[in-house]
Design a protein around this nucleic acid. Structure first.
Lengths: 257, 257
DNA sequence: TCTAAATGCGAGCACCGCTCTTGTTTTGGT
DNA sequence: ACCAAAACAAGAGCGGTGCTCGCATTTAGA
């Protein structure tokens, strides 16, 4: 109806006439396409709001449509199911985290390897604290039946890729002096899938170490966000951050840097 | 009705007459009390089945009552809400994990500190692999509105307590040789809540180190169970376990043992 | 024995994800 | 410029959920 349509357009950027926005050939942004974009964005925004406020389990498509003033059935023109909506949100969360970490890491001088490592750890924690529910959307309880679609894996690996890059550069520096002992055959086999993404100059032990540190980082963050540090570490940001910095030092030491 | 009652009693241990089972004073097990126990246990069993099969989010009280042949409203005589049922299951899971880890640790000679540490790590992982959904019930995404009741905290600390015990004994051994440098004031303050449960002979750094290692352990397990090691570590038990053992070695080294 | 508490049941409420039908709007080819 | 086809919005409806309430029955304790 005209009513709901008006609501929808109100929610969004000025419904300027679509004709002055280049009616060029190719995909000349039609009214349909523009509306679709706007409404899709509105749905995602509302969904993000809901998740930020009360977590992924409370995400309700009916609540979204209610807020947007549309019929509950209309949303299925944009997302075939609640799971597809969640998938999109998951991808966005991965990208949001990835972008935040990449931005923080890029601000550190290239030659400062430990500084870059620190930046990765800190910005990951920072993002997690600022987006708790989105963090658990990604690193929390896996959804029973849910199988991660293909298009989630690329965004999912952004921060891991960054970590590997730093690890590789660190290995390159340290490879100049002395060869390292070979890892046990079983560990080598275990690492074989990861090996294909990591140059040979990184030893098996360095790879395993890096991965272990990586999971320790997320363990630390999950502990803090999950309340496992309640009555253990003082609940002020200064204390929490001091403990986190202590952990970073430990990880750097464990990496042999 | 007699029908559903029959079903219920069938599900459970023989409904032997309650009179021969000491009609003594005090809480002379009445028919009511016995049935209540039986039905409560049946509900919990069915709930555990559901969780083990498809996770906590899929836990449905109606499905439980259906399976037990009772009216959906009847379950509220036993658990006032779905959340209370979940709370009970959470407590049970904590206890189950705690008991498993305590049993494994107790089998190692007292003087073998690293062996006891290893036993804690391994049995925790083992339990998590065997009870994936229960693990995430405990260490997964925190429920938005959920506030852990008082009676969960004791079971929740069983494995942590065990870990602290080993840490303390290790500190006692190493305290004989040399004092350790004081930790920064901020870290000391951060650790103050934990300090009240840990004797003074454990230094701040040792405490923080132990805690960090503890969270790393759960980070590692969550990574494995959460699928974060997919395409990273080979998905066979031998490979997974080899990588886990490598991590244990790293943690022991980080603890300075 | 007799009252009060505990228990079971069914109807019902408000919500959920999702489907199907109907009627309207927009698009694109002729 | 017209018209069939596609996209879309709305509403009713289905089966599911957690939970409440009133009523009948059973048990406990005085």
């Amino acid at each position: 109806m005209a009513v709901s349509r008006a609501v929808l357009t109100n929610v969004y950027a000025a419904p300027d006439s679509c004709q002055d926005v280049r009616v060029a050939k190719e995909k000349a942004a039609s009214i349909r396409a523009l509306n679709r974009e706007r409404i899709t964005a509105a749905i995602l925004d509302a969904a993000r709001d809901q998740i930020a406020h009360s977590g992924a389990s409370a995400l309700s498509v009916r609540a979204i449509t209610r807020e947007l003033g549309m019929a509950s059935s209309a949303i299925y023109r944009y997302f075939p199911s609640r799971d597809d909506l969640l998938t999109k949100l998951i991808i966005d969360s991965y990208d949001s985290l990835g972008a935040a970490v990449e931005a923080a890491e890029s601000r550190v001088p290239r030659e400062d390897l430990t500084g870059r490592f620190r930046a990765i750890c800190r910005s990951t924690r920072r993002w997690a604290l600022d987006n708790q529910h989105e963090y658990f959307l990604i690193y929390g309880t896996p959804v029973p039946g849910y199988k991660a679609p293909q298009d989630t894996i690329a965004p999912a690996t952004r921060v891991a890729t960054l970590m590997i890059t730093v690890l590789v550069e660190a290995a390159a520096v340290r490879a100049t002096n002395g060869r390292q002992p070979a890892a046990p055959a079983e560990l080598r086999r275990a690492l074989s899938p990861m090996r294909s993404s990591v140059p040979d100059l990184v030893s098996d032990a360095e790879m395993a170490n890096g991965l272990s540190t990586f999971s320790a980082l997320f363990g630390a963050i999950s502990f803090e966000l999950g309340g496992q540090l309640h009555n253990v570490i003082r609940e002020t940001e200064t204390s929490r951050s001091a403990y986190f910095e202590f952990q970073i030092d430990g990880w750097i030491a464990a990496l042999g840097w």
